[in-house]
């Protein structure tokens, strides 16, 4: 089974107001059976990355202007749309944030699953129905056979997300892209869905690209983490290193702003990052985080490169690159 390897992916938005850099030189890779969490706040480009990988970018205004999305030996970014149709939903699948609106409300759950089976596996009739029921059982829906004939509005949000996952894994994809799969769900249901994703990954060995803003979810799920800010990957590394010794001041800010279960009490003050995420139209020159950064200095007027500072641990920050990694961790 092949993993996913994104190399130098850049996406621009061609709008009336000018060309905006939505993604700049994003490189990521996820190995089979592993989970890469893509973390960042709204507008940082994490969903844009997912859509670019799936070739589902809203065109216009968005367009891939550079880079490759390698799935094994195939560059998805260069595939003609006709061939991409055979890849999407088969080799690479995606689940979305809002399960209720991701399912077609006037088609039964069963028909929506069987549609994928018919298209990619050539299964029809009895065989497709049996496989669809199997899939529903696999994602933990009881009484699967009967549920096939239900319409989505009869199911809760958690159930709909399970159905979405069933559709996504129907063809045993090599890569599953999950864009905020639990953000719209309650915590107890979120725990169920995360557990399910872990179990399915262990059983099928698929690579999981998990997009989330929730560092708690990252800690629970990820093997590797990539932190994005203003369309760039600013830090990347193994999950333990990211949490224990974050290198980029933005990552440190995010971690500081996240109340970390159990220890924080009423009278501790959360560390906050001043200001707010800049819009693409008014990105500062150089490091986009510099205006909010406590460590910013003259050099930050230029764009810092993503450099390896510890084993498998990269950061795009002049301040972090100037000092040893363990000193940064202590800060």
């Amino acid at each position: 089974m092949a993993g996913l390897d994104v190399r130098g992916l850049s996406v621009s938005l061609f709008t009336r107001g000018g060309v905006l850099p939505a993604l700049s030189e994003v490189s990521l890779s996820v190995q089979p059976g592993r989970t890469l969490a893509l973390v960042g706040e709204s507008g940082c480009g994490k969903s844009m990355t997912a859509l670019a990988i799936m070739r589902l970018l809203p065109e216009p205004p968005a367009r891939i202007i550079a880079g490759q999305v390698m799935l094994g030996d195939t560059d998805l970014a260069a595939l003609p749309e006709r061939r991409m149709l055979g890849v999407r939903g088969k080799a690479v699948s995606m689940i979305f944030q809002d399960p209720m609106s991701s399912l077609n409300p006037v088609v039964t759950v069963g028909d929506q699953i069987m549609e994928v089976l018919r298209r990619h596996e050539g299964l029809t009739g009895r065989a497709a129905r049996m496989r669809a029921a199997e899939l529903l059982a696999l994602v933990g829906i009881s009484d699967a056979e009967a549920r096939l004939d239900e319409y989505p509005h009869r199911l809760s949000g958690g159930m709909c997300q399970r159905v979405m996952i069933a559709i996504a894994i129907a063809c045993r994809p090599a890569v599953l892209v999950a864009d905020e799969p639990t953000t719209a769900l309650d915590v107890t249901v979120q725990a169920q869905i995360l557990e399910l994703l872990k179990r399915l990954q262990a059983e099928t060995g698929m690579a999981l690209l998990l997009i989330t803003h929730d560092l708690g979810v990252v800690a629970e799920m990820a093997d590797e983490v990539a932190v994005m800010y203003a369309g760039r990957v600013v830090e990347q590394g193994p999950v333990d290193a990211i949490f224990a010794a974050p290198l980029h001041p933005y990552t440190r800010g995010l971690l500081g702003a996240t109340p970390s279960g159990g220890t924080a009490g009423r009278h501790t003050r959360l560390a906050d990052i001043p200001g707010s995420v800049p819009s693409l139209a008014e990105l500062p020159a150089g490091c986009a985080f510099a205006p909010r950064c406590p460590l910013a200095f003259a050099a930050c007027a230029a764009q810092p490169p993503l450099a390896t500072l510890a084993p498998n641990h990269l950061a795009a920050c002049f301040a972090a690159q100037g000092m040893p990694a363990d000193a940064a961790a202590g800060a």
Binding site: A191, G216, V217, V218, A219, E220, D240, L255, G261
Partner: peptide
Amino acid sequence: LLSAAPVANPALA
């Protein structure tokens, strides 16, 4: 509820 809430600490998780 407490148990389901994800904790931002991979080792503890």
